[in-house]
Every structure is written in structure tokens, then in C-alpha cells.
Amino acid sequence: EVAKAAGVGVGTVYRRFGDRAGLAYAVINDREVKFQAAFLTGPPPLGPGAGAAERVRAFLHALVDRTEDQLGLLLVAEMDSADARFTEGSYELYRQHLALLLDRIRPAADVHWLADALLAPLAANLYGYQRRTGGMSVARVKAGYDDLLAGLAPRGGATAP
């Protein structure tokens, strides 16, 4: 369908994008660039200027929304290659961003493991299962994140900047 709409052959599309995952990520890219700009340089709480805990929550909620909006494309991209989610570029940026913020909340924690654990529920196949088969609403997914994040609060109840 993409080749037909572009007026080129299927081989041309595959030469340009490599596989279906590459094509899906190319379609996703415009939204991805905007999302990255929002959490790297946009206004708080998603962007700089809010406390670390607030930013983690805003980031995860925004990523839930993004996953919801582009679930079909993400399913195609992630199913085409077992490693696509981890090698297309955004995952590592998300992981590092979360690790940086988590280090401000819980400096002694294994923040990279925690970042992976927080990103895992947004793998397209699991998220799709929760939404379609499990009947979970977007609000319920976000509430689940809020419950997880409550457990990450600094010991002693202090809030991290």
C-alpha cells in the first residue's frame, strides 16, 4: 500500500527502509521528534523545571498517550524484529532520561534496571494485550504507573527536586 501510494515499486520501499519495522518507525518519526523535544526542552512538568518525580510521572503518562495513539504502527515495528524496540534509537534515550531522573529520586537504586522496568509495560504487544484483551483503560494504565511511582518515593517521604 505504501509503495502504491508513493508511486514506486515494493522493492524501492524495502531498499529505502530495510523492512516493515524500518518503514513503521519512519512513519512514527515525526511524532517521536515532537515527543523528544517536549521532554528534553519543553515546559514542565514534562520538560525541565519540575521536580524529578513529577517529570517521571509526566513522561510516563505522555508515553502511554503516545503508545495508545500509535499502537498499530508500534505493533508492526516491534513484531517485525525481536530487537527493534531496543535498536531503533528512542528506547535508549527514554532509558537514559528516566535513569537520570530516577537517580535524583533514589540515588542508591539501580536506576537503569528501574528505567527498563518502567518502560517494559509499554512494549507494544503487552500494552496492546492489556488494552484489547484485558480491557484496561488508558486511565487504568496511568493509575498503575502512579502506584508504581509511589513505591519509588525517596525513603523518609522527602520529595526530590
Rank of each mutant, 00 (worst) to 15 (best):
D116W: 03
P44F: 00
L126C: 04
G89F: 01
T87A: 14
F17I: 07
V10A: 15
V27Q: 11
L152S: 02
Y129R: 10
T133V: 11
P43N: 14
E32Q: 12
H97W: 00
S90N: 13
Q70C: 11
T87C: 11
A120V: 04
P45G: 15
L100K: 13
M136C: 05
F59D: 01
R66W: 06
M136W: 03
A53Q: 11
G49D: 14
T67W: 01
A21C: 12
A26M: 06
G47E: 12
V27G: 06
A139P: 04
G89P: 01
D83G: 11
R15M: 05
R57G: 01
D69R: 06
D110S: 10
V76K: 08
L73Y: 07
P45A: 13
D65G: 12
P48Q: 14
R55W: 01
V64K: 00
V111T: 14
Y14C: 07
G18D: 12
A99E: 15
F35T: 01
A6M: 08
T159N: 12
L102Y: 04
S137Y: 05
E92W: 03
G144S: 08
L23D: 15
Y14G: 02
D19V: 02
A143C: 05
R15W: 04
A50R: 07
P121C: 11
A158K: 08
T67D: 12
